[in-house]
Write a protein that binds this DNA or RNA. Sequence first.
DNA 1: TTTTGATTCCATCAATTGATTGAATGGCTA
DNA 2: TAGCCATTCAATCAATTGATGGAATCAAAA
Lengths: 234, 234
Amino acid sequence: MKSPLEKARKNPESMKARILAAARRIFGEYGFHGTTTRMIAKEVGIDISTLHYHWGDKNDLYEAVVMDVNNDLGKEFLNLEKIVHTSTLEERMNIALDRMTDYLFDHPEVSNLVLFRYFSKTRNEVDIDFKVPEFSGNIAHAMGLTKDAKNPLSRAMMEVMIIMNGMHSFVSGENYFRSMLKLDRKNYIDLVKETLKFILIPAFVLREEKMKKGRSRPSSKMTQEKKKSKVKPS
Amino acid sequence: MKSPLEKARKNPESMKARILAAARRIFGEYGFHGTTTRMIAKEVGIDISTLHYHWGDKNDLYEAVVMDVNNDLGKEFLNLEKIVHTSTLEERMNIALDRMTDYLFDHPEVSNLVLFRYFSKTRNEVDIDFKVPEFSGNIAHAMGLTKDAKNPLSRAMMEVMIIMNGMHSFVSGENYFRSMLKLDRKNYIDLVKETLKFILIPAFVLREEKMKKGRSRPSSKMTQEKKKSKVKPS
DNA sequence: TTTTGATTCCATCAATTGATTGAATGGCTA
DNA sequence: TAGCCATTCAATCAATTGATGGAATCAAAA
């Protein structure tokens, strides 16, 4: 027997799936308490009783939405991992940031829902977090952040989270930031990418530099190509 | 005649001020729709009609909270500016990140409310943003990010926002992240500072390096004081 | 003391909200 | 056709929520 979520994903035209999609959007915009089941039903064009028939109560639906979004995000990370094998660290980060940013701007409710889960409490003690796998650990591992002993897992996970939060913030805050900067969407997205790369990449590249020099083993082409900008170990 | 907000700030023991303080906490935790006026009244230990007597309706109170938090944040930026004149860019950023992080961890509702304003919509179209001055521009200027022609205002503001958002995220997400990493509060805060500094500082230091080399013209005091910085020109 | 004004709470309302019931609807099979 | 089952909706509930009116309280002024 499949879970309701799997059923809904199987046929995107089904009522179950249409409700879930609408719920993602609305919950993403207004948060749990800011969303009423009527808002979702109206978005789909159905009665609330139909919504409850398919998804149970509001908490159940919200839980399904969170799982669904998390699932999508997980898939996206897998795809990313496949693409990003090659080249230097700098190049890998460039590609990953580009791709991930594009994905999130195409699915802003993903960022919205992730941030809601991080930052806000729900009045009723719905504890769905224990069901939601956290990717930070995996990503940290995939990025090779946990390879050196000086960088324990929690530190590596923090580094992943600051990267992810940077992206999520600019995606979720698009309305706010964009109207502040008076930019159109395309220019905003370009500026986001530029800023993310400018801020996030150097730290990692420099550390890699240091580590390699520390070992005094110039192995990859990475060391050579970065000769021109380096920090002297203090 | 003073504004209600000024009155409340004048005497922290007054009912007006106590309600405002409670409202900051509760709105910060649960967001606008997640908060009921009864929750705030209960926190203070009063009846809801007393709350409405002092602050009008829920929107008015929320507006006052946002203005209050924004005001505090502005003051904190001013204090920071006074302290942070000296030393190298790297040192200035170290101090600023330390101080700002401490402040936000001491007043987490500030981060919460800022993020709520950035990321979530309110069902009723309360448009208080036009009243809320945005500091990003000032900070960008104070940090000297707008001095070179290559870095237009919007780019500089994005850089400020990624810094602020990094701090806000770790403060607001403390519960979530800390339980994920299984750290106590002190260790978490230390790790946050370490991570923020590791990620955020190198990009700016490197850029400053490059600019100086590019111009090969030591003009302002900024440029001179950096001679002894840790970053060695290759 | 009486009066005045500010403050607080109790009782109550109307609207909203989450949720259910039971009656239709329509497709499928025996 | 009749029976069965899944789906949908109108009607309705009970609880919650934002908000108000009016009585009670209290301190300072007259």
